[in-house]
Design a protein around this nucleic acid. Structure first.
Lengths: 212, 212
DNA sequence: GAGCGATTAAAACAAACGTATGACACAAAT
DNA sequence: ATTTGTGTCATACGTTTGTTTTAATCGCTC
């Protein structure tokens, strides 16, 4: 019955469970039974659990990063054409906004975000490498574009500030939805557009801050 | 031979391995053989692997958080005495600087930092709870003090900006030392004082940023 | 419709894990 | 000198893990 879509079913369940419970805390038995497929199907279609994780990343990251790259280079090109510096806010928005649109389009993608957030802090180097293989070229492009936008800062300064920015973004993606501690007087809007604006205010100010 | 210090040996090895390899990736067999103690010693002295993690957190976090609390309340008190608002930079420095001094004093504490950084992104709720039990009261105090320092911002705004700040700090602690991707032209100083200053410049600007 | 490659099903595999057990060593106290 | 309690040791237990294997089933071409 479910011949061709078995791979998709596995990918969907893996994305959801890896994002919610973590990679190591998700067993292939729980995953395959959640997907309604046989236990051996993972190893047959993907080869191993790690290769499945790789496929999960690839399915989302390849189209998403293509859009991000296009938007980053559009910002770069527009600035070069107008003979001005690219704005740090435009650069960062070009990197962040596609994630937002992408999550509205693809169903189930919201459970992908925590997975990305955790990959940044992953202790297991094998897992981290799988993620960074897709992200490293884009991080470098983002870094170089930020260096163009902020010529008054040293490359070392920009590197660390980008590092903080990635940390803030990753942590936000990790906590997507479930919050344990909510101080009184704080509404948890979960309005993605609002949250993106608050995030952008923060990281743009941090990026453009004067050095002490 | 190693009567009383067996517990300490286990705690030291656990701190190092949990920080470097992660909690779930560290087996009790590897841990006890690294500590030079018997496999059963962990369950004898601590009861379980999770209780050991709790003890690892407690040993460092209790004294560290006491200092942080004192410094936060000193900033608060000084502002109240002078009838001025506490400065956001002073508040954040009161929270961050003790970590720096604490890591210089206690040997092996630098491997504790990645453990803290990862606890924030931990998918396993049991582990997260153990960490948050020590941190939540202090996060709340930090949050309230920041609300005093930044009365022009809504509590929701400050909540999210503190959230980003914690993410930036956690990610920095995770990457303490080992870096995979280093763009050309970036020196990796690892000078903790310098890094703290760069971090403070960033998060203070992010905290004080105007709302768009 | 026979034959064949591709896919699924059920069961078994070896390895690793956290934990528990029971014997032993060595103090200090009785 | 004997008891008692504490800590250490080697070892075994029961589970769970990812992976492999062996059969059975399905869809298709000739």
């Amino acid at each position: 019955m479910s011949r061709a879509d078995t791979k998709e079913r596995i990918l969907d369940a893996a994305e959801r469970l890896f994002g919610a419970e973590g990679f190591h805390n998700t067993s292939l038995r729980g995953l395959t039974s959640a997907a309604g497929v046989n236990l051996a199907a993972v190893n047959y279609h993907f080869g191993s659990k790690e290769a499945l994780l790789e496929a999960v990343f690839e399915r989302r990251l390849v189209p998403l990063n293509r859009v991000r790259r296009e938007r980053l280079e559009a910002v770069r090109e527009a600035a070069r054409r107008d003979r001005v510096l690219p704005g740090a806010a435009d650069v960062l928005r070009a990197f962040i906004e596609p994630t937002l649109h992408f999550c509205k389009m693809e169903p189930g993608a919201e459970s992908f975000l925590p997975l990305v957030g955790r990959a940044l802090a992953e202790p297991d180097d094998t897992i981290r490498k799988i993620f960074l293989r897709h992200m490293e070229p884009l991080f470098l492009l983002l870094y170089e574009t930020l260096c163009e936008a902020l010529p008054r800062l040293s490359r070392t300064q920009i590197f660390w500030r980008l590092h903080f920015t990635i940390g803030a973004m990753g942590h936000t993606m990790c906590m997507n939805g479930r919050f344990k501690i909510l101080p009184p007087g704080v509404e948890t809007p979960s309005d993605a557009a609002f949250l993106t604006q608050v995030l952008l205010d923060y990281i743009v100010a941090g990026m453009e801050a004067p050095c002490a």
